[in-house]
Design a binder for these strands. Structure first.
Lengths: 341, 341
DNA sequence: TTGTATGCGTTATCAG
DNA sequence: CTGATAACGCATACAA
């Protein structure tokens, strides 16, 4: 006894009407008499009628769902962002399909292809730290798929973008450390070519200049896997913190990278912020209590997700060709949060 | 210049064949000549043909997507489980739609209704800690929607379930603490009526008996919000740890609950495991380095997710009526992991 | 105001 | 071996 959903046809038959009348009545068309409308709507209600989204999609060539590509959801920044994405999407009547690249280019391409193969009306993507070739995204964009780049945007691809003011964020973070007496501040990023990292590096360098601190290229390090592999971070930190002229503070440019730094410091009995100052990007609620006086920046994950989704939904339902790009850069407050020492 | 996906019809026209021939060739039907088959498949490949899942769904009354309801994705157990779910679902050709209840009953009902109305083919759910009324799920099950209960199952609802051996897990955890010299072990759960908590409580009590430790009802506490609200946990811990006869160890029965305990201890300069022993459920990779010798149990999140999904996919494609329930309880290894002190 | 016919992309069932 | 046609559920242009 399988559950058979009631269709417009069933209603039409039961009420001795045509399917089109029923359809129009349910859509509250002006050309239907109030009486018929009422009869249909009441009966539909009673039978718990639900329009079949698949049939709708077939007609409109829409799936009413949007795809999301992030590096991983077990990341406080992205899981918060996803909350924002979902809340907007649901209100707009969209489902959200989340995929994870695990910082792998190959995986990202697979995910994007899968989403694009008509299971999705639009895509929100934060590229993997490994991605340097963007042809899969350019292709998609050229085919007319609405895409919003999120957080980790691609500078040289013309499309819609939502990101934070990474330059100012890194600038503020560096200034903060400098003002607290740190003289040799290191910069730890994930991927050198990632736009958000480039911007942060620029902000970092500007802050060094403004606080008259020397710029030391040895203090700039990258972990391609973005902290997904602890050992990679460990190797880099070892390299960074060896010798006599080692840094006395670090700016860590990713959620997991920050976690890994803390882990490494714990393991090696390095005290934060006494031995080493540390500021981590992203919203790690753990870091607040892990190490007193560790500062954490960028709290607007939810808003960023929500904004990106609003933009995407707008793009999807927009009648204008998607090719009329409007770059939109969102600048959320970058918060330096300090806990008491 | 909107992107128009290539359809079977297009291929048929281009190759001077009928749509049915093309369809059969692509499905590798035995009644098509090798030559035609090759011609069609090659052309389809070249044109990057992708079958339209919506049209497929219309025929089969399927959406090829499954819904997931968890309390939150920013939870190491669930985000790992979701990885398992997605990997199986993806291989079986299903999309995964994730929703979060945030431990709210109301939210859970909304999510379930939403998923059901958008006609996912099946649902994997881990109920919220607030949920005590299961009519929304019973209703759905009675309508024939394949449902697999995951992790936080409902004991008195007859359907398919995948969970871990919580009784043994708690038993082992408690024994571990007892064997390490702790005498007054407290039990911290989220919701009293949650089956996994009841089972863990039973295992805890049995372990107390077996290690000849007294059972003290004051040592059993609950945080309904499952750690989502730190202050709630803090209040409970304050209550638990006051007085002279306070516990010397705690079993924390949820991911965030464990985190909150650590946060509270940090704040109050309580050393783990010297002042208080602590074992937390779920897979918190952070805890490993946060506090030496903190033990963490249940590593099988990925496998559990994968198993639940396999079961669900099987249910969906099963021709038998879904009402023939088979309870399936998965018993993953419960691991007590220790880091060096 | 209502009904009829058509099409969205695909597959199954007939015919040939 | 291949082709024509109906059907899935819905919306809509066109007819009445």
């Amino acid at each position: 006894m399988k559950f058979e959903p009631v269709t417009i046809k069933d209603i039409a038959k039961a009420l001795n009407l045509s399917t089109s009348t029923v359809s129009r009545a349910l859509r509250d068309s002006y050309e239907i008499s109030a009486k018929t409308k009422k009869r249909v709507i009441e009966y539909a209600e009673e039978m718990n009628y639900m329009p079949n989204p698949i049939a709708l999609g077939l007609k409109e060539r829409k799936t009413r769902s949007i795809g999301v590509v992030v590096c991983e959801i077990a990341n406080s920044f992205f899981s918060q962002a996803i909350n924002g994405i979902e809340s907007v999407a649901y209100n707009a009547g969209y489902n959200v399909i989340i995929t994870q690249s695990n910082e792998s280019y190959e995986r990202e391409v697979i995910n994007v292809k899968h989403l694009a193969s008509r299971s999705v009306d639009g895509i929100i993507i934060s590229i993997s730290s490994e991605t340097t070739d963007f042809s899969h995204l350019k292709e998609l964009r050229d085919k007319g798929m609405p895409i919003v780049f999120f957080d980790r945007i691609v500078a040289d691809i013309q499309t819609h973008k939502v990101t934070s003011d990474n330059y100012m964020g890194a600038y503020n973070a560096t200034m903060h450390l400098a003002q607290n007496g740190y003289k040799k501040i290191a910069f730890l990023g994930n991927a050198e070519y990632l736009s958000i990292i480039k911007e942060r590096l620029a902000g970092y360098i500007k802050a060094l200049e403004d606080s008259k601190l020397p710029y030391n290229p040895d203090f700039i390090k990258y972990c391609l896997h973005g902290g997904l592999i602890y050992e990679e971070t460990e190797t880099v930190l070892k390299e960074l913190l060896k010798g006599k002229n080692k840094p006395d503070a670090i700016i860590a440019c990713a959620d997991k990278l920050t976690t890994n730094c803390l882990r490494y410091f714990k393991k090696n009995n390095v005290s934060v912020p006494n031995d080493v100052g540390l500021i981590g990007f992203s919203n790690l609620d753990l870091t607040e209590w892990l190490q007193p006086s560790l500062s954490v920046i960028r709290q607007q994950a939810f808003e960023m997700g929500a904004n990106a989704t609003e933009l995407l939904v707008q793009l999807i339902s927009s009648k204008r060709p998607v090719k009329q790009f409007e770059n939109m850069v969102l600048v959320p407050n970058m918060i330096i949060r300090e806990s008491s020492m």
